[in-house]
Simulated scan of single mutants.
Amino acid sequence: MQALPLLALALCALQLCPAVLGGKGHQRKRMQVGSFSWQNCGGGQDPAVIRSMSIQPDPINIPGDITVSIAGATSVTMRSPLAGDVVLEKQLGGGSWIKVPCVDNIGTCKYDDLCDILDRAIPPGTPCPEPLRSYGIPCHCPFKAGSYALPTCSFYIPNLDLPSWLTNGNYRFQVVLSNGGYQIACLKLTLSLQSN
């Protein structure tokens, strides 16, 4: 199994990057650990779906250490322009959910090309950051069709300098990846964040 350019894509759910993907014909899957859960939302028709994902701790502490594992596959090459449509909602005290608007590319945002965003975050020619480098996972488009896995690994999330109203609480994300108007993947995540 090849290593996945996943971390670079999957943590967009945390507005750090977009999602990882898995193969055509797989059933919708859902996994829940505490308040963290994930679900492929393409109705089994997308060429890319996640097969497994775990994130610890729950809630995620910012700043703090996070442990992630993820596996998936894609039957198509993901290339530029890789559009991303992110819907971010926060749970209010009474249990209802409100959509977080797109402010400075954080929130409910449309991204014309996530490949370009990756190139700006990690300039081409520079080494991919850890843990991607250790597992031989590329951090630039195109991401070739195939099966991918990021074994359990830990890394540090620095203080993201987000407003306090955005860091503490329960969140729902839906991330849809597409190329040329063709949907490649859809992922829903629910998680909790706690600012230290």
Score class of each variant (00 low, 15 high):
residue 1 M to Q: 11
residue 2 Q to V: 08
residue 3 A to I: 08
residue 4 L to E: 04
residue 5 P to C: 07
residue 5 P to D: 09
residue 7 L to S: 07
residue 10 A to H: 12
residue 16 L to H: 10
residue 17 C to W: 00
residue 17 C to A: 12
residue 21 L to F: 00
residue 24 K to L: 03
residue 26 H to S: 12
residue 27 Q to K: 12
residue 27 Q to E: 01
residue 28 R to S: 10
residue 34 G to R: 13
residue 35 S to A: 12
residue 36 F to Q: 04
residue 37 S to D: 12
residue 39 Q to C: 04
residue 40 N to Y: 01
residue 41 C to G: 02
residue 42 G to C: 01
residue 43 G to V: 04
residue 44 G to S: 04
residue 44 G to A: 05
residue 45 Q to L: 12
residue 45 Q to I: 06
residue 48 A to F: 01
residue 52 S to Y: 13
residue 52 S to A: 14
residue 54 S to Q: 11
residue 54 S to K: 14
residue 57 P to V: 05
residue 57 P to D: 05
residue 59 P to A: 12
residue 59 P to M: 08
residue 59 P to I: 04
residue 62 I to R: 14
residue 62 I to V: 12
residue 64 G to C: 09
residue 64 G to F: 10
residue 65 D to W: 15
residue 65 D to F: 15
residue 66 I to D: 00
residue 66 I to L: 12
residue 67 T to E: 07
residue 67 T to D: 07
residue 71 A to E: 14
residue 75 S to Q: 11
residue 75 S to G: 10
residue 76 V to W: 04
residue 76 V to C: 02
residue 77 T to P: 02
residue 83 A to I: 01
residue 85 D to R: 05
residue 86 V to N: 10
residue 86 V to C: 09
residue 87 V to A: 08
residue 88 L to Q: 10
residue 90 K to V: 01
residue 93 G to R: 13
residue 93 G to M: 08
residue 94 G to F: 03
residue 95 G to A: 07
residue 96 S to Q: 15
residue 98 I to D: 14
residue 99 K to F: 07
residue 105 N to H: 14
residue 107 G to E: 14
residue 108 T to A: 03
residue 112 D to Y: 00
residue 113 D to S: 03
residue 115 C to H: 03
residue 118 L to F: 07
residue 118 L to H: 05
residue 125 G to T: 06
residue 127 P to I: 09
residue 127 P to A: 05
residue 127 P to E: 06
residue 128 C to Q: 03
residue 131 P to R: 15
residue 131 P to S: 06
residue 137 I to C: 15
residue 138 P to L: 12
residue 140 H to E: 02
residue 141 C to P: 09
residue 143 F to K: 03
residue 147 S to R: 09
residue 147 S to A: 11
residue 149 A to R: 13
residue 152 T to G: 12
residue 153 C to I: 14
residue 155 F to Y: 11
residue 155 F to A: 05
residue 157 I to Y: 09
residue 159 N to V: 04
residue 159 N to Q: 09
residue 166 L to C: 03
residue 168 N to Y: 09
residue 169 G to N: 06
residue 170 N to I: 09
residue 176 V to T: 09
residue 180 G to C: 06
residue 182 Y to Q: 14
residue 183 Q to M: 08
residue 184 I to G: 05
residue 188 K to V: 07
residue 191 L to T: 10
residue 192 S to K: 14
residue 193 L to T: 06
residue 195 S to G: 15
